[in-house]
Every structure is written in structure tokens, then in C-alpha cells.
Design a protein around this nucleic acid. Sequence first.
RNA 1: GGGUGAUUAGCUCAGCUGGUCAGAGCAUCUCGUUUACACCGAGAGGGUCGGGAGUUCGAAUCUCUCAUCACCCACCA
Length: 905
Amino acid sequence: MLEKTFDAANVEPRLYQEWEKSGAFNAGAGKKDGQDNFCIVIPPPNVTGSLHMGHALNNTLQDIMIRYHRMQGKDVLWQPGMDHAGIATQMVVERQLAENNEPGRRDMGREKFLERVWQWKGESGGTIFNQLRRLGASADWSRERFTMDEGLSKAVQKVFIELYNEGLIYKDKRLVNWDPHFLTAISDLEVEQKEMNGHMWNLSYPIEGIEGRTITVSTTRPETMLGDTAVIVHPEDERYRDLIGKNVILPLVERKIPIIADDYVDLETGTGAMKVTPAHDFNDFDIGKRHDLPMINIMTREANIWLKDNEDFLQGLDMSEELQSTINALDGVERFKARKLIVAMFEEKGLLAGIDDHVNMTPHGDRSGVIIEPYLTDQWFVDAQTLAKPAIASVKEGRTNFVPKNWEKTYFEWMENIQPWCISRQLWWGHQIPAWYGPDEKVFVAATQSEAAEQAKAHYGEAVELIRDEDVLDTWFSSALWPFSTLGWPDKTPELERYYQTDVLVTGFDIIFFWVARMMMMSLHFMKEEPFHTVYVHALVRDEKGAKMSKSKGNVIDPLDLVDEYGADAVRFTLAAMAAQGRDIKLATSRVAGYRNFGTKLWNATRFTQMNGCARAEGFDPNSVKETVNRWIVTELAKTAKDVSEAIETYRFNDAANGLYRFVWNLYCDWYIELTKPVLQAEGESEAKTETQACVAWVLDQICVLLHPFMPFITEELWAETGKTGPAREGLLILGQWPSYDIDDTGAADDINWLVDIITAIRSVRSEMNIPPSTQLKLEIVGASDQTQSRLQAQDAVIKRLARADEIKLSSDVPQGSAQVVVGEATIALPLAGVIDLDAEKARLEKEIDKISKVAAKFEAKLGNERFVANAPVEIVQDQKAKLAEQQALKAKVQEALGRILAAL
RNA sequence: GGGUGAUUAGCUCAGCUGGUCAGAGCAUCUCGUUUACACCGAGAGGGUCGGGAGUUCGAAUCUCUCAUCACCCACCA
């Protein structure tokens, strides 16, 4: 006999071990008779990561599909693995070094530092996978991969070399987003624009040769004026037309820079004159290119002002004492301090024309949080525009589909405007770029140094010393290869052959650009086939009030805390039930508690079966059950199974979960079990009892199967429990067989619906009339049709039990002073003269009539509308007519009942 | 500046391709310990589906518009 509740904390780890030991997670485990494959690659979490709600949702949905398809008998692979997370990991290890007062990364040197990172990875990396295990994730852990594994690194190298040879990867000197904290370039995607309150400074630049005349430019970044190389005005601008072609004397540095015309300038904005700093602003960079302006970088990598020994800056300057002192004052100063100093200097010279408040979008590094500096450096880029073309076509032509579909628009929007992807990072942890430089900076890209040396020898005609590029690749470069690199590419492995193309990618919308788009590009280029046919994009998990969960807000719900409190099944079921497409999930823990209760409900239903001898029967055939109630429940089960399967296959996980919830609680527990009690608890043996016992057990079995993808632990446990009696069971539920039935008995459904109606109606009256549960009623049925009479006879015991009546008889008249309920054509009288309040009964019936009238009025209005009758489809009109007639008949009956009460009053 | 998604019972949300679609769960109220379950059972109250206009015989469901909120993208000094 089972305990009263399911002890998740104890059972879950045990069952998880059993599953793992059984090999059920391994690819091929569920395979039966050479059926289909099903493959999902996990979105690789950061090696530094720990489980948050987003992961919990993401992996729950994946596991539901994986378990579902496994039970379908497919050869299933859920490919797990982790991402090396360049910046994040380097950050963690550097912090650890600092905490231990150990030498920093630079003091340590590259090799030793990397050793430390590997050591850290071995000790603390990948805790997230143990957390996923607690959720019940049935990934094939034996195939776990890491983006820095030898195999995956080989794939990265091959991809880099091939793209380079095809001209799709190139090195370029241009402005990049520079993170002055981590001292590395980052891609556009790793930049977050944040609104900041700042100022707009108006700076006046004197015109060369025109005493007393200045031109005023507006800027949000005065410190960059040190690197100005032009002022531009609009060619049509009357105010400045005479100045075009002249020079300004750049204040402080006394550099002569030209005033040129460029229609980039907006006549309406600011003063209509713009300073141009090509080395520190993306727009200015383009303008500089257009006009072939010098690009003067005036900052160090740390974003401090750099003037001394800065050749580009010093070139062409006349070193005066004043300039020297300006340089002394500014050199090495942090950029925002320098800003203040420079503004003050302008003010002192009388060249500060004004300061306005200004709100501007400021770029921040998503990891470091510091303000990004547009910075002129040599970096490696991927020609994303070229790679994007087939990736766009693929989605346009439906070879890969987004669910929900509206994400395709976002995807197109981004892909069609894609910029070169900066892939080099000035970090150590990552895939070092396979490029070597000769004496004249000539690049040799090759898999190994010796290959590079050969190339160099061929080029120079002699052996030369080569220096390897220090940089590593963007982490997302390796993630982009995930669907094929994890399967063994570039080797032609059986897994690659078998599981590629994978099926579904499950992901949050926040990484569509980072990851999905790039997988599409790389996979199409190297595999010539889409990485997956479907991208299921799920929502963000927010807190109860809809706010994004974040540490700083302190509203983070830790999924493991929820698992501790309510069990993994409850957490999973909650997430599935709330995963309606296209909506964020606002997680309320009350929901989790509710679904924990759902598990308990099922648990106790199983206890009920045990107490009532409902053991599984050998060769039970749901198609041949005879009892109405049994025919009804198997019909409902068949419907539910069909709905759930369909919902899972169309990614409507909430519909699947809710369908199961409804069936288990509202049909199986609330009605089926109650309806079977009279038979099950009757003395002695009967065919009906034997059949019902078997049927109750069988449906419970099927519930476990259908619920297993959602609530794997409790169902597995119950499966084991119910396996202890009846015919021996083979194996674990995880490898059970997903059902589909062809059962549909509408007659039984009608009978039971009638039964439910009559019981509900009587209960309702009892409750409203305050008839205590202990009072046994005598029911008198008036006007019953033949069908109703036979139903009454068949269901006599059940009605008596559930409506709490000790006698049911047919009558020709309603006894005076009875409470009355109308069910179909029959009126059920509850003879309670003297017990009930007739005024209350009168009010109740009046209210009932009112309600019916309202419904009837709707149909009347429709049918009274000539145009409706003329235009609506015939079936609809017929349907509405029938419904109206039904309501009218009902109303007449209730009115009769009311008449009797009025007479009695 | 461009784009997307919201707005349905007190709360959190379902409602697909227009015709009982006005629903669920929590919360509330009443009653209940009948041996599966109080993490329970029975019953009840509660919304003119954000405002307005339109299409249609018929709209929560389609179109437009306004309002409010959220998010994403963007180099306007």
C-alpha cells in the first residue's frame, strides 16, 4: 500500500539513477524495428552557468518531446553539451585568482592561465548538468560535448580555414566595439544600448584666416575632439557655404582641419555643423573613409587619453609650450575625466558655446557593463551578408520553420541587415585563431604551425620565423557549429549520418540572433542542409508581476528551490502548462503548488485502485468492455490521448498539459472513480465488477504513460507500484509505449453525460436549499422518457450514492411542496414539504428561468434576423433552431415547476 | 526613429482557421471528515473580453484608429 503522498525528494534521485543505469537515455535505446530518428541538440549552457528558470523551461520542453518520441519507439538522441563561454569563464577564473591573492592572468602567462581554466572547469564547471538531472532531463550524457573538446576544436579550425580560403573570413582594420574593461573587441550583439542622461556640448572652433569667426559644433563626447580631422556642413547650408574649403584651427591641439561639405549632415539638427572623429565614432568613420580623412586614435586600450608618443596624433603639430602643457594635462587621463578637463579648457578659452541636457543611447558591454568605445583595430570578420543569403531563403521557403511563426519576421529583419561579424577576441580562453604572420605581417592561415611554415616558405622562398595570432574566436563561432560538430563533423561519423538534420531547436528569443541565425548560416554552408526543420521559440520566464527576473531586483526564483519544495514533476508540469505560444510566462508559485497537488491526486487515485482490487488484467481489451461507464472512460481516454499527441507535435505544450490535467482530475478522479464505487464496493463477485476493476487499472496505466513526458518521476514510481500485481511488467515506463486507440462510443458518452447532469443538478439543489448531506432524499421522477427510464434503472445505485438518495421512483405527479430540477424532458422532484423554504425555491426557479430566457433570447434574436436565416450556412441555422427549441422546452418545464410552487404557496 | 507582442473574472492566464467561447486555476463565500485524497469533496458569486469605428447575417476572435504597458532593433552629431 502506498503512503498518502509522493515523496519526491527521496524517489526522484533513485529513479533518475535507474533510468541512467538502464541506458534509456542513450541514443538508440527506444528504437524498435528500425523506426524514425528524433534528435534535439541542447542549447549549450555556459560552462560557468547555473540553472535558472529559463533553462528549466527550455529543457523541460525538450525533455517532454524527447520522452514522447522515445515512447513512440523512435531512435532518440538528445545531445547535451556545454559552451566554453570565453569572457564569462575568464572572468570567473580571474576573480578566483584575485580572491586567492594569486598572480594575475598576465603575470601568470597564457599557458599557465589556460591550465588554470581547465582545472577550474574540471572542478566547478558544468554544475548545471547536475541541476538538469534533478529536473529529470533525459539527455544522452554519454555523448556530452564541450565546445573546446578536441573534436569540436577541429571543426572550428576547419571552418575557419575554409571560410578564409573562400574569402568569407577576412582581416580588416576598422572600428569595432571595444570593451575597455576586458580589453577586447566584442560583436554588435554583445553591446547593449542604454539610455543615459547626459549633455550636449557646443564647441566653437576658430576659422583659419578669419579673425574672430568660429564655427560651432555639437557633441556628446567632447573628449574625442582631440582626434577630430574635419568639420562637415551640409552643401546646401547657406550659413556655412562660404566656409567650405577653409580650415578650422582645432582648439587645444592647434591642428588645421578642413571644413568640408557632406550631405550626411542634417540641416535641422544642432548647429548644422558636425565635428568628425573617424577613429572614435562609427558614423565619423564612414565619413572619414568617404573623404579620405586621417584617422587619429587618441585613446589607449584602457580608454585613457593617449597623446604622448602617439605618432598619429603628433603628426603635423607644431609643438608649442601651450600644446605641451595641454598634452601633459590630458595624457593618460581616463576618458570621462578628460571630458571634464577639456570642457573646462574650452570654457577658459571662451570657446564653450553652451551646454544642453541630452538623453542619449549609450553602448555598454553586456558582460562588463562599461561603456563601449568605438576603437580602431585590426580584427577578423566573417562576411555574414554572404552567408545569410541561403539562411534567409531557407526560412522563406519553409525548409526551416519558426514556431510561433511571427519570429520569422524578426529573423528576416536582422538577417537582411546583417553586418560583418567581428569574431576575434583579445582573450586567452577560447579557440586560438589558426593564423600566423610572417615578417611583413603577411597572413598564413593553416591548421598547424608547420603547415603555415610551408606556406610561408613557398611565399618567401625561404624559411622565416612566424608569429601566431594571439586572439581567440568569439564563443558563438563554435556554438554556430553545434548541430554538426557535436555529431562528429568533420569526420563522417555514423551519428552525423543518422541524426543530422536534427529535428527541433528549442530556444528563447533572446538568442535567435546570437545563435539560431549563425547555426543556420554555418550549417547551410558546410552541411548544405538546414540544421533543424523547426525552431520552437519559447517565452521568457518572468516573476509573478511580469518583471524580468534579475539578481539586482532580487526577484529571482531558483528552479531548484521549487524542485526542493514541490518536486521536479510539479515544476515541469507548471512550466509546460504555462508555455502558451507567444506569451511570456509569469510564474506564480501557487501554480506550482497546484500541480504538486495534481500529482498527489493521481497518487491517491492509485491508492484507491489498490484498495479496491483494481489490478491490471492479462489481455485486457478496452474495445470490448461492456459496462457503460467503462465504455465512456475509454472513449474519453482515447480522445485525450489523441489531443495530447497532437498538441505535443504542434508544440502546444500548454494544451497537452491542460488536457491531461482535465482528464485525470475532472474525468477520471471526479467522475469515473466515483461512478465505479457502487460496483467495486459491492459484495461478492460479478462480471461487471471484474471488468471494472480491470478497466480502472488499465486507464490508470494509460494515464501514467500519457503523463510520463510531463511528470516522469511520479509516473515511473506508480508504474512500478502497479506493476507489483497483475501480469508481470517488462522494463521501465521511460521506455513504455505511447498509445493511440480507436475507440469512440458516443452512446456511452451520452449516457454518462446525462448521469453527470442529473447528479450535478440534484447536488446543486441540495446545496442551495441547504439540505444537509446526511439527509437521504427520495427522488420522484416525472415525465421520464423510455430512455430516461432505462438510464435510471441502469444507474440506480450510482445516482443514489452520489446524489445521496435512498429511493428513486417514477411518478405521474410532483408531490406538493417538492423542490424540483429539470433534466432533459424529465422533472425530478425532491419531496421535502415542510423541510424546504418554498419562497427560496420560488426564487431559485425564477432565477433559473431567467437564465434560460437569456440564452434563448440570443437564439431568438438570431433566428428573428432575416438576413441571418438567409445568409448563414444551413447547418448553423438548423443548429441554432435546435438549440432554441431545447431551451424553450427546458424553460416550459421549469415554468411548470414554478407553477406548482406558486400553487403551494 | 523602426518593429513586435500584449490589454478577457480580485490575481495569473486559456480561447487555433469568426456562429453556447464568455472559460480554467488560484483567491473569495457556503456546506462537508461518505474508509483514495483536506496537497480533499460538493455547491455558489464574479467579466458589456482596454476605448472608438468598420467589415459581416453574426466578432473576444478579422480591419482601422486611439490609449496604456512591455520588449526588440537602430550610427543622427
